[in-house]
Design a binder for these strands. Structure first.
Length: 859
RNA sequence: GCGGCUGUGGUGAAAUUGGUAGACACGCCAGAUUUAGGUUCUGGUGCUUUCGGGCGUGGGGGUUCAAGUCCCUCCAGCCGCACCA
């Protein structure tokens, strides 16, 4: 028998055109409706969409369409994170202009995304490389500068020698550039910084108010911010000749004190040495010219660059010969070392070593023969072989003896404060965000350098500072800096000749606020209107990859706070809900020679026996285990791709892309189409009155239908899309096995069909529209509400429960859900298997949980 | 080293507050349709068995009438951070 086949390509195209005509997904602020802001992380326009994009945007689309059906005013926008290095690399390789490359990529990717049938308000599309976009970013920077949230300082920076630019701390992974993988070098440069540390505590504390964020991401941010509380105080340096450093030699030495930070002030009496970071300013002063110092410094630098290598490296130190004292430890002198395990970046770059209770100090003390004192004891703890860091009470500590650790900490801080040397303080691991990049394809930093006036901000009315279009990549380095005229300008203050800042912003700046630009994308005067932000913000559901757990998500949280402080909006926490999707993985294939083979090549092979099938791993170009979404959309259509992505694997977990999986989805789509097309002409008209009397089978189907409504809604809301798909398939199975006998049955069949269509609408929107129309509806399903649940149909008349004897399942009985215990007992004991298992033994206990279980305890 | 997550059939996975483990699929087996393959439809499919049963959620132990779920302990894999004082 020939079937009327579902013409996927034409139907999908048709419905996308209909949605466009009806402007289905274009929204405006509507105070009468509750808003819902769905945000998917915006793509970088690399040229082609990849399967990760398809997963991301399918998820956001299901949420958007579902919430819209629920009656929310849903904003679901899309844009392009369009500044960045790949454009420049492409420009160098192909001789095109980064702008041309970027805009043609955007066009291509937009076409691909549109083929997915996403419920996006494209009228709000933004591209961050548009001067109309970065103009507002420049204004933002000026406001930050005004508020002291942007500043310039000379600092040691991470230099990526391949990309020829600076990297933020967050962009250095294992001592290597996050993009290039090249070992980063240390350079001293004058750089622009954003004062993210100003918000360190708020960024940390507010994580507690983000219950709809994954725990994992909150922990990662918490660790990144790295708050620790302790005492900062000073030790006096004694010169080698035994007398205190005089004022004159103090001036020579620069300082006669060493300031340290500790989280364990309680262990003060366990101190046995002072240690400075090799790049500590005092280190040079105390050790310069001494025998072996230069060799020591060299040794410090020879350690590998990876974090792990640094952490595992042997602890080495250099004895300066100087000693230090502290007023709370009268009569004691402590040697001052320079040690490779002390970081200049953290705390004060100096510590006092307590070998008994810090493993690093312990290792160091062992090596250099320094005293190891026990000052904390739990009674059975020991510092014989390793440092003791557990709980206990203070010992060998004079006026602290017997105290609890926390108590002792407070006491030492108090005494230091009393003698005017030191204070309780908080340290953060978080550093300010260095945003200067020595690249062309970024947002120009709107600053001018004037010989007379110094650094002068560009006046707002001169914005945007646009990138020049006539650039070349004939030589390495920043094309902006060597452009013949661009940087020449006049000082806004004195009118004399001046030079523009030629550094551009880190491209993470653009993604700091794009979700705000979506709210008001055509506003020329301001980045966005405050009232619009008041309506739409915060983002209700943000969806994207885990790789942005720290970088982007922390920067965006910072930026929203900074903007709030500059009066741009009143919300300071941008994303109330966050969902991080898993990766898309695929099997790997290698031929006899070990060359990687693509899945498409593998499928096309007649003889697959010579191919070695390797592990399923994240799709990567180098392993060639990549699926091109374009092929999938072309072959199976958008709905099949979307369905497959939502089926089986929970969205937070990795998704294994398989040929059989996508085929299965495609078959199901055809099955649904066939099922409804075969029956549609037998059904009553849309909106026919409820016959109110139903056969038993029809009642069962109604019950299944309404259970599915409640079940699918719950699953979607908890991001269990795989379960939602399973519930939809369960309903369609029930419908398929239902054989209508009369008009009432056919009414029920229509109800079930229509419900089914509405339930899979968010997932397979094209098919849903097609079938919705086939059932005689003139309206768009995309504009129809979610079906209502008839609660009375959710309860079962009877329920089948298990009967256990001594905890082992022996039989099943069917009862009313609220059947009395006597009824249950009678039914249970009437079962042959139950009698057999009881083997004539006496009933000691009879447990009956209505609707759940019977357990007969007999012995 | 520290922190987190995960471990359930051949595979992806389900399983309210502890209450019939394996829903829904993929694959596989058998049958029907088809010239054949594919599609489609029907049935079966945790392992094992002497067909009575027995055993099953990474291993071991515990609590309970009852444990994938709670507690203790060990193991494996993945991810993040890593000399942070």
């Amino acid at each position: 028998m020939t079937q009327e086949k579902y013409n996927i390509k034409e139907c999908e195209k048709k419905w996308r055109a209909r949605w466009d005509e009806a402007k289905c997904f274009e929204v405006t602020e509507d105070p009468s409706k509750e808003k819902y802001y769905v945000l998917a992380m915006l793509p970088y326009p690399s040229g082609r969409i990849h399967v990760g994009h398809v997963r991301n945007y399918t998820l956001s689309d299901v949420v958007a369409r579902y919430k819209k059906a629920q009656g929310f005013n849903v904003l679901n926008p899309m844009g392009w994170d369009a500044l960045g290095l790949p454009a420049e690399n492409a420009a160098m390789e192909r001789g095109t202009h980064p702008a041309d490359w970027t805009y043609s990529n955007i066009e291509e990717m937009k076409r691909q995304l549109k083929a997915m049938g996403l419920a996006i308000d494209w009228s709000r599309e933004v591209a961050s490389c548009d001067p109309e976009y970065y103009k507002h970013e420049q204004k933002m920077f000026l406001d930050f500068y005004e508020k002291g949230l942007a500043y310039r300082k000379e600092s040691v920076v991470n230099w990526d020698p391949v990309d020829n630019t600076v990297l933020a701390n967050e962009q250095v992974v294992d001592g290597k550039g996050w993009r290039t993988g090249a070992p980063v070098e240390r350079r001293t440069l004058s750089q622009w910084f954003l004062k993210i540390t100003h918000y360190a505590d708020d960024l940390l504390e507010a994580l507690k108010d983000l219950p709809r964020w994954p725990e994992k991401v909150r922990i990662m941010q918490e660790n990144w911010i790295g708050k620790s509380q302790g005492l900062q105080f000073k030790w006096d340096v004694i010169p080698q000749n035994g007398t205190r450093i005089s004022n004159r030699s103090e001036a020579e030495a620069g300082n006669a004190e060493i300031e340290v930070f500790t989280t364990r002030p309680d262990t003060l009496f366990g101190a046995s040495f002072i240690a400075l970071a090799p790049d500590h300013p005092m280190a040079k002063k105390l050790a310069e010219g001494k025998d072996g110092f230069n060799e020591f410094l060299k040794q410090c630098q020879s350690v590998g660059t990876s974090e792990e290598a640094i952490a595992q490296a042997e602890k080495i130190g250099f004895d300066t010969g100087y000693k230090a004292t502290h007023p709370l430890l009268p009569g004691q002198e402590f040697p001052i070392y320079i040690a490779n395990f002390i970081l200049m970046d953290y705390g004060t770059g100096a510590i006092f070593g307590v070998p008994g209770h810090d493993q690093r100090d312990f290792d160091f003390a062992k090596k250099y023969g320094l005293p190891i004192k026990e000052v904390i004891s739990s009674g059975n703890s020991s510092i014989e072989n390793e440092a003791y860091t557990g709980p206990g009470k203070l010992v060998n500590s004079q006026w602290l003896d017997g105290r609890e650790i926390e108590d002792a900490k407070a006491e030492v801080i108090k005494r230091c404060e009393n003698i005017g040397n030191g204070f309780g303080t908080t340290q953060y691991r978080l550093r300010d965000w260095g945003i200067s990049r020595q690249r062309y394809w970024g947002c120009p930093i709107p600053m001018v350098h004037c010989d007379k006036c110094g650094v002068v901000p560009v006046p707002e009315d001169q914005l945007p500072i646009e990138l020049p279009m006539d650039i070349n990549y004939d030589e390495p380095g920043n094309p902006l800096a060597r452009h013949p005229t661009w940087k020449n300008t006049k000082c806004p203050k004195c009118g004399e000749k001046a030079t523009r800042e030629t550094d551009t912003c880190d491209t993470f700046f653009e993604s700091n606020w794009y979700f705000l630009r979506y709210l008001d994308p055509c506003n020329e005067q301001r980045g966005f209107d405050k009232d619009k932000a008041a309506y739409w913000m915060p983002v209700d559901q943000y969806i994207g990859g885990i790789e942005h757990a720290v970088l982007h998500l922390l920067y965006a949280r910072f930026c929203t706070r900074a903007l709030a402080d500059c009066g741009w909006l009143d919300v300071k926490e941008p994303f109330t809900g966050l969902f991080t999707q898993g990766m898309v993985t695929h099997e790997t294939y290698q031929d006899e020679k070990g060359h990687w083979v693509t899945p498409a090549e593998y499928e096309a092979l007649k003889d697959k026996s010579k191919i070695k099938v390797g592990p399923t791993i994240k799709m990567s170009k180098s392993k060639k285990n990549v699926i091109d979404p374009e092929d999938i959309l072309g072959t199976y259509g958008a709905d099949a791709a979307r369905l497959f992505i939502l089926s089986d694997s929970p969205p937070e977990r990795d998704l294994q892309w398989t040929e059989s999986g996508i085929e299965g989805a495609w078959k199901y789509i055809n099955k649904l189409h066939r099922m409804i097309m075969e029956q549609k002409d037998n059904l009553p008209a849309p909106g026919a009155p409820n016959p109110s009397k139903f056969s038993e089978n029809a009642s069962k189907l109604r019950s299944a239908t309404h259970k599915a409504i409640a079940g699918v809604a719950k699953s979607i809301e908890s991001f269990a899309m795989n379960k939602a798909v399973a519930q939809i398939r369960e309903l369609s199975n029930a419908i398929q096995s239902f054989k209508p006998a009369d008009d009432a049955d056919r009414w029920v069949q229509r109800e079930a069909f229509e419900t089914l269509i509405k339930l899979f609408g968010p997932m397979m929107p094209h098919l849903a529209e097609e079938l919705w129309a086939a059932l005689g509806h003139k309206t768009l399903l995309a504009q129809s509400p979610w079906p209502e649940v008839d609660e009375s149909l959710l309860a079962n008349d009877t329920v089948t429960i298990g009967v256990q004897v001594n905890g082992k399942m022996r039989a099943q009985i069917t009862l009313a859900p609220d059947a009395a215990e006597d009824t249950a007992r009678e039914a249970a004991l009437a079962q042959d298997n139950v009698q057999k298992a009881m083997d004539g033994k006496e009933i000691r206990k009879f447990i009956y949980v209505p609707g759940k279980i019977v357990n007969v305890v007999a012995n």
